[in-house]
């Protein structure tokens, strides 16, 4: 584990060193590229006056609200579409069309409809998370072993029990993968949304840095985005692996 972390960190550390040396030697203009040490100092400053925590918290709050809303729509709809081939046929071209449009492209529209406040940003997140969650749920529910469904039929399970006892456990891992991908998608889209229209949040921090010509601030924000995203993904993957023994059983069971 420790070795894995060291191995993964080697390259970024090397880049940071070269970067620092480059700046110190005067071969790059600090206005374009502040030294890592300057970025670090700026980070400590923001930490001291609370700006960093407040920005991150503002972003995370939006992320969670939007994500939960999105999952609450996407999972049930995905189950419905996964179970009924007809629903799939009717909606899938539309969804493929919508999927091509990056969430950020909708921002102006959402602002027009929902105003400049929280609602428009949350709408972007809902949109961004929806497709991975929905599509994975459809795939998971649509891929349930028909032989197991037949066992449910033979034992006269009513639709709701069939869902709870056959479909959902079968599709659990696929749904979870969708949630994980959805959350990563959200995080990226959120920063985009904040960049365009927000007074708070990590994206807004970047905007501040740009307008006030404080590139160090921009770098703090950019690194925060990357690290927070990594952390979110990492913890969800851990959780997913906890679910995976079920997957292994699934592959080998019912032989």
């Amino acid at each position: 584990m420790r070795y894995k972390i060291a191995r993964g960190a080697a390259f970024p550390v090397l880049v940071l060193c070269l970067w620092e040396i480059g700046v110190r030697l005067g071969s790059v203009d600090v206005f374009f590229l502040p030294a890592p040490s300057a970025v670090g100092k700026s980070f400590l400053n923001m930490l001291a006056n609370g700006l960093w925590q407040a920005s991150l918290w503002a972003s995370l709050k939006r992320l969670l609200t939007g994500f939960v809303l999105s999952a609450l729509c996407a999972v049930p709809l995905g189950i419905l579409a996964g179970k009924t081939r007809n629903v799939r046929y009717w909606v899938s071209p539309t969804l493929t069309f919508l999927q091509q449009i990056p969430p950020i492209a909708w921002i102006p529209v959402f602002i027009l409809w929902l105003g400049i406040g929280e609602a428009s940003k949350i709408a972007v997140i809902v949109y961004a998370a929806f497709f991975p969650i929905f599509l994975n749920t459809v795939q998971g529910v649509g891929g349930v072993d028909p032989q197991l469904i037949e066992v449910g039929r033979a034992f006269m399970l009513k639709p709701l029990r069939m869902l709870r006892r056959v479909y959902l456990p079968s599709a659990a891992l696929a749904i979870f993968t969708g949630l994980r991908l959805g959350l990563s998608n959200c995080w990226r889209a959120l920063v985009g949304a904040e960049l365009i229209a927000a007074a708070t949040g990590i994206g807004a921090l970047i905007n501040d840095g740009r307008q006030l010509s404080q590139p160090d601030k921009i770098f703090v924000a950019v690194f925060t985005i990357g690290l927070a995203g990594m952390l979110i993904d990492f913890s969800l993957k851990k959780l997913e692996n906890k679910l995976r023994p079920g997957k292994r059983m699934y592959a080998q069971g019912g032989k």
Binding site: Q147, L148, A154, M156, P169, M249
Partner: peptide, 28 residues
């Protein structure tokens, strides 16, 4: 249609991989 007066044993066991033996037996 299927009824509680008949039960089927299929060619394959068709057990639910996420349930243990006891839970599989209690499935119906």
């Amino acid at each position: 249609g299927p009824g509680s007066d008949r039960a089927v044993v299929f060619q394959e066991p068709r057990l639910f991989p996420w349930l243990n033996v006891e839970q599989n037996i209690a499935f119906g």
